[in-house]
Simulated scan of single mutants.
Amino acid sequence: MENTVLHKANTRGHANHGWLDSHHSFSFANYYNPDRMHFGVLRVLNDDRVDAGMGFGTHPHDNMEIISIPLEGDLEHKDSMGNTAVIKKGDIQVMSAGTGIYHSEYNKNKDQLTKFLQIWVYPNKKNVTPRYDQITLNEADRHNTLQQILSPDANDEGVWIHQDAWFHLGRFDKDFSTAYDLKKSGNGIYAFVIKGDVNIGTIQLSERDALGIWDTNSITITANTQDAEILIIEVPMSV
């Protein structure tokens, strides 16, 4: 029997630092909710808005897989591995923090805010050598289909992480319907609506709502509005 947990957009943690407006799907920083610690190995899903000319100063991470998905504008990344890069809408960025890295992220634009999703996933291997990667995707390849943006396999589509996880993005016409079949038995799905209204099975979701589903092999996604966008995160359920 499939199990679900519904996270409505307005039930997320919220921190407004002025330059940074962040909504937290799971406990993060000063937001603590014992019922929202993680979904399987998915530890963080932050929906961030960074003002023009502002950003995150240099800070450390370790033993976490960190994925950034820009939704609007761009973000300059610098890290202790010597990487300097700019990520923008259409890009996917991944870091394996492993034994430890330091990095900073800035919106260097003087007149445009940046919106991005930052996602943390517990790795299945500890203390790996840190690494950084980013790719640019063709956003047209997710029109009325689910475009794979992340997997456990370096030779597969998208970026890869140290975990049996798969991420897909889709942008759908109104009334378009598609199925997502889980890649690995025992995994669960955390579906996050970026834009518009969709149904997952019989459950209706609006913009920035999320639905966690486990003990299932497949889900059906139907768009109720034009250009509905959804992020499908498939992850192992045991940490």
Score class of each variant (00 low, 15 high):
5 V>S: 09
6 L>N: 09
10 N>I: 12
11 T>M: 10
11 T>I: 11
17 H>N: 14
21 D>S: 09
27 S>P: 06
28 F>M: 04
30 N>A: 05
31 Y>G: 01
33 N>L: 01
34 P>H: 01
36 R>H: 13
37 M>E: 15
38 H>A: 04
38 H>Y: 14
42 L>K: 00
45 L>T: 00
46 N>A: 07
48 D>G: 05
49 R>C: 06
50 V>G: 09
51 D>R: 13
55 G>V: 12
56 F>P: 05
57 G>L: 06
57 G>D: 15
62 D>T: 03
64 M>G: 06
66 I>R: 07
69 I>W: 03
69 I>D: 00
82 G>Y: 11
83 N>A: 00
85 A>C: 06
86 V>Q: 08
89 K>N: 12
90 G>A: 01
92 I>Y: 07
94 V>L: 11
96 S>P: 03
96 S>L: 05
97 A>T: 07
97 A>E: 00
99 T>Y: 11
103 H>V: 07
106 Y>T: 12
106 Y>Q: 01
107 N>D: 00
112 Q>K: 13
114 T>C: 06
116 F>N: 03
119 I>V: 02
121 V>E: 00
121 V>R: 02
122 Y>T: 07
122 Y>W: 13
128 V>T: 12
128 V>H: 04
132 Y>R: 04
132 Y>W: 14
139 E>I: 15
140 A>N: 15
145 T>R: 13
146 L>H: 01
148 Q>P: 07
149 I>H: 07
150 L>N: 02
150 L>W: 00
155 N>C: 02
157 E>W: 13
159 V>H: 10
167 F>D: 01
169 L>N: 02
169 L>F: 10
172 F>K: 10
176 F>A: 11
187 N>M: 05
190 Y>N: 05
192 F>K: 01
199 N>P: 08
202 T>M: 12
208 R>P: 07
215 D>M: 12
216 T>S: 14
219 I>W: 11
220 T>K: 13
222 T>H: 03
222 T>G: 01
226 Q>W: 08
228 A>E: 12
239 V>G: 15
